[in-house]
């Protein structure tokens, strides 16, 4: 028998919430790494690199996230013969999903920086990559910070889809409770409040970073 009080729900829901946070943060971190690489591929002079980046973006944007999650979950074992947990497959799917959108955000951020900044740095004698690192990326980061926060909120909420492959993240944790006691409304309200709290903390954090950079 489960404890049907607000407090009684908390251990299960908090466990779900922590998994949601972990998957979201890992997806954002690796998604950003993929995003940087793919953005640079999109901006590179190599036609092959641009084509690969563009195919990746089209696939991720064109397929429903739910389909992507199922594909990764069933395709990895089929191709590699490895058994993967729902959490691992789900995190890979969310990372690939986040990476495609981060690539678009980073590309537009880099392109928003005045060309004169690039030329001035090259004219001193810095290489293309040193210029990107010292002058372009730091300025682009400031521009795209709000978009990164926005992507965080999207990734955070979309991790709820991982419930379909049995990942007990926040939404699934709620389902496991109300499937037994039918206290659907109260449980979902709690689940909703927890998503909101995670989002608000992230929003505050990005606001804090933005203010720091503005100085």
């Amino acid at each position: 028998m489960i404890d049907s009080s607000w407090i009684g729900y908390l251990p299960t829901l908090l466990a779900g919430a922590s998994l949601t946070i972990v998957v979201t943060i890992i997806s954002m971190l690796f998604g950003t790494v993929i995003g940087v690489i793919v953005a640079l591929m999109k901006l590179s002079s190599s036609r092959v690199a641009r084509a690969i980046a563009s195919i990746y973006g089209t696939l991720i944007r064109g397929l429903p996230l739910l389909v992507q999650i199922l594909l990764v979950y069933f395709a990895i074992p089929a191709i590699t013969g490895l058994r993967v947990s729902g959490v691992a497959a789900g995190t890979v799917a969310m990372t690939l999903f986040t990476g495609a959108f981060m690539a678009e955000i980073i590309r537009s951020g880099i392109q928003s920086i005045d060309k004169g900044q690039y030329e001035a740095c090259r004219s001193i004698g810095f290489s293309h990559w040193a210029t990107m690192r010292l002058v372009i990326c730091p300025q682009a980061f400031r521009v795209i910070l709000p978009s990164i926060a926005n992507q965080f909120s999207i990734t955070l909420k979309d991790t709820s889809l991982l419930s379909v492959i049995g990942v007990v993240e926040l939404t699934m944790a709620g389902q496991t409770i109300y499937a037994l006691n039918f206290d659907t409304i109260r449980v979902l309200a709690l689940v909703g409040i927890m998503y909101l709290i995670i989002y608000l903390v992230a929003e505050q954090f990005s606001g804090w970073v933005e203010r720091r950079l503005a100085r």
């Binding site: 005045d114 004169g116 900044q117």
Partner: peptide, 29 residues
């Protein structure tokens, strides 16, 4: 890149590095 170190350039629109102080603009090179 090496040759450019020996050729200074001043632009119409200044193009100071917006993410650096005046001092950093001058010392980074």
């Amino acid at each position: 890149d090496r040759i450019r170190q020996r050729i200074g350039m001043v632009f119409q629109h200044f193009n100071l590095f917006n993410n650096m102080t005046v001092l950093q603009n001058i010392t980074i090179g």
